[in-house]
Computed example of a mutant assay.
Amino acid sequence: MSIWQRIRQAIGALRAGEPLSALFERMSREPEKTVAFTIAVIALGAKMAKADGRVTRDEIAAFKRIFHIAPKDEAAAARVYNTARMDVAGFDFYARRIARMFHDRPAVLVDIIEGLVFIAMADGEFHPGEEAFLDEVAAIFGVPERCMASLKARHMPEGANPYLILGVTPDIDDAALRTAYRNQVRELHPDRMLAHGLPQEALRLAEQRLARINAAYDEVRKLRTAVS
């Protein structure tokens, strides 16, 4: 049974008038938190959609890419998303509970923020309302401003600063650059994340982040080779 089918069944069991946030609270108390994690991330994405007042096809496509939603599960995922949009609980409800759920694994919180940034920029623009929303979620998660700037840079149109993507400055020497890069790759390695008991959805967010870090590092190396 897919994660979406499990969530659809759980939503179908909601008592009349019961909000999605109540389901999240119940699922977050279970040892296996995959359902709770997915509901919370979807809820944050749905709340963010209200920040600029519209949901574009590009944003929907980005959402599907992050969660690898198969065609057979699209209806179930759409129901979760629409239920989340109508939920009376504010985005901070979910943000604060996710922050507590992964307080000892800050890399997961960074991956969630990056997934939301990816969705927000999927239509080619970064609405001020979306940026304000993300900055507030990042503050709740305890994500540093410099890290947040790096996350935004990774999803800017062509021409984004690769040094900013890596979270370093251009004056860094080659040895320190390699160390910074390797530390990030090690933190995002699937085996390390699985050892922490993270749900598969968190691994997929990490994969997106790792791909951009690798591309930025390759670009910096080419730039340095060209001037040497």
Rank of each mutant, 00 (worst) to 15 (best):
G129K: 03
E158N: 13
A61F: 04
R57S: 14
D92C: 03
I113E: 04
A132R: 14
N161G: 01
R8G: 09
F24M: 05
R54Y: 07
Q9R: 08
E74H: 04
S21H: 03
T225L: 11
Y217K: 05
V220K: 06
A78V: 12
R224G: 03
E32P: 01
R182G: 07
K152P: 01
H127D: 11
N183S: 10
D92H: 09
P157K: 06
I213F: 05
I98R: 00
A202S: 03
M101D: 08
M48W: 04
E125A: 12
A76Q: 11
P190L: 10
A160L: 07
E158A: 14
E25A: 15
S21W: 05
V137L: 03
P157D: 06
I60Q: 12
T179I: 15
M121I: 03
Q208L: 15
R209I: 09
M148L: 14
R26C: 05
A132K: 14
F63Q: 01
V137T: 12
T83W: 06
A89H: 01
F67G: 02
P170S: 15
I119R: 04
D58C: 00
R154I: 10
R105C: 04
H189R: 06
N214A: 03
D104W: 01
A95D: 10
T56Q: 05
A40V: 06
G45Y: 02
R100H: 06
P144Q: 09
L205K: 06
Y217S: 06
E125I: 07
D111C: 12
V117D: 08
A153F: 00
G12Q: 08
I172M: 05
R154H: 08
P162R: 12
T38A: 14
A211R: 15
I119N: 04
V185Y: 10
E158C: 07
S150C: 10
H68K: 15
E59M: 02
L116I: 00
T169L: 15
R192S: 12
V110C: 10
H155G: 03
L116T: 11
L164E: 12
E187V: 13
I172V: 15
K152N: 08
V143Y: 02
A107C: 08
I213L: 14
A175L: 11
R85W: 04
H68T: 11
I172F: 09
A215I: 10
D104Q: 13
M193G: 10
A180E: 02
S2C: 01
T169K: 13
E130D: 09
I112Y: 00
V41G: 02
V168Q: 03
F118C: 02
G53N: 09
R8A: 13
I7E: 03
E131V: 12
P170D: 10
S228A: 13
E145W: 00
M1A: 06
G90P: 03
E201Q: 09
Q184M: 05
R65F: 01
A75I: 09
H68F: 13
G45V: 13
L188S: 08
R209D: 09
D171E: 14
L177T: 07
R105P: 00
Q9M: 00
E25R: 14
L198K: 06
N161I: 12
A70M: 11
I66V: 15
Y163E: 10
M156C: 07
P162I: 11
P31N: 05
